[in-house]
């Protein structure tokens, strides 16, 4: 057990390190990093100082090590756009994105899993067909289009303008973008839960439980659902990736003041320092999530724990 956990942590660290290195080399390839990272109105002397500190006259390896070292000291560079440090811009926007993303994830998980369970338990019924139809719909629907439709119908039918500037932060103002963002993940959760539960229900041990006299309710709650939940957990990591990606677009559609919009503005203005910090934070979030998912998997499934001696 300890061995598996250590290996998984090690793997996460390596993954993160490679992501960081890729970011470094891309920035290095693109132009003068000193200009990119120094505060925008910095006098040439300050830019020069950055140049020395980044060691642009040094061999690539030294530069790389200094780059990593700078990160550990919390130096991620400054925004050319606003002159503020990259992390301060990021953390200022983080709560809005967390609120949106977590709400979307909760909607996706809650509704998706429920729909999937119902579909599996009513296999081949109208509800099952509806849920499966919905999951394809959710998969194929571009979230920016869906978002625009929500905005449009809100304005036409309910007289609400979602995402307008100065809009009050009401529940509806959160729900519309969160539902849009969570739609695709909801579809995959529904579909995945359904197939996982159907597969479990067809396992020989479920028949064995029936003939041992275990009542249906208990078979479902104590055996089928826990077993079916294991693969659904792995979906969590993948769907978080989808939500991070979707947030970029959804925030744009609903003018949601989060990291997604910061990212787009940074791309448009080539604000490298901010961009870099966002990419690093996404990599960190995703790596940690994937690690946690892996560990939860090990906890849920005794077969993953390896030998007794570990």
């Amino acid at each position: 057990m300890a061995r598996i956990v250590t290996l998984k942590i090690l793997r996460a660290v390596i993954t993160l390190l490679i992501a960081v290195s890729l970011v470094f080399f891309f920035i290095r390839l693109s132009g003068d990093p000193a200009l990119a990272l120094a505060p925008p109105d910095a006098p040439p002397a300050v830019v020069e100082e950055y140049r020395t500190r980044l060691g642009l006259d040094q061999p690539l390896l030294t530069q790389y090590l200094r780059y990593i070292g700078g990160m550990f000291q919390g130096d991620f560079g400054y925004s050319i756009h606003t002159g503020r440090s990259a992390q301060s811009l990021f953390f200022e926007r983080l709560p809005a994105t967390l609120l949106l993303g977590l709400t979307a994830l909760a909607i996706a998980l809650g509704l998706g899993v429920t729909l999937g369970l119902i579909a599996a338990l009513r296999h081949n019924s109208i509800i099952d067909r509806f849920v499966m139809g919905f999951s394809v719909f959710a998969f194929a629907m571009p979230n920016f289009f869906f978002g625009l439709l929500v905005v449009l119908s809100g304005a036409l039918f309910f007289g609400v303008f979602f995402g307008g500037s100065g809009a009050t932060r009401s529940f509806g103002q959160l729900l519309a973008p969160a539902a849009t963002l969570g739609l695709a993940a909801m579809g995959s959760f529904a579909r995945f839960t359904r197939s996982s539960l159907l597969e479990t229900l067809n396992k020989p041990f479920m028949t064995a439980l029936a003939v041992r006299g275990v009542p249906p309710r208990r078979r479902l709650l104590r055996h089928a659902i826990p077993n079916a939940a294991i693969p659904v957990v792995t979906m969590l990591g993948l769907s978080l990736g989808g939500i991070v990606a979707g947030a970029v677009v959804t925030e744009q559609v609903f003018s949601w003041p989060g990291i997604g919009r910061l990212l787009i503005r940074s791309v448009e203005t080539r604000d490298i320092a901010v961009l870099q910090f966002i990419v690093l934070m996404v990599a960190l979030t995703m790596t940690v999530t994937n690690l946690l998912v892996d560990l939860v998997y090990v906890i849920l499934d005794p077969r993953m724990r390896g030998g007794q001696n570990g």
Binding site: P204, D301, P302, R303
Partner: peptide, 24 residues
Amino acid sequence: DTRQRGREIGTIFQEPTASLDPIM
């Protein structure tokens, strides 16, 4: 009566490991 299963009728299957819940 299906309620007699497990109490008055015992069953043994071909794949013993597959007839047990793997995570309990």
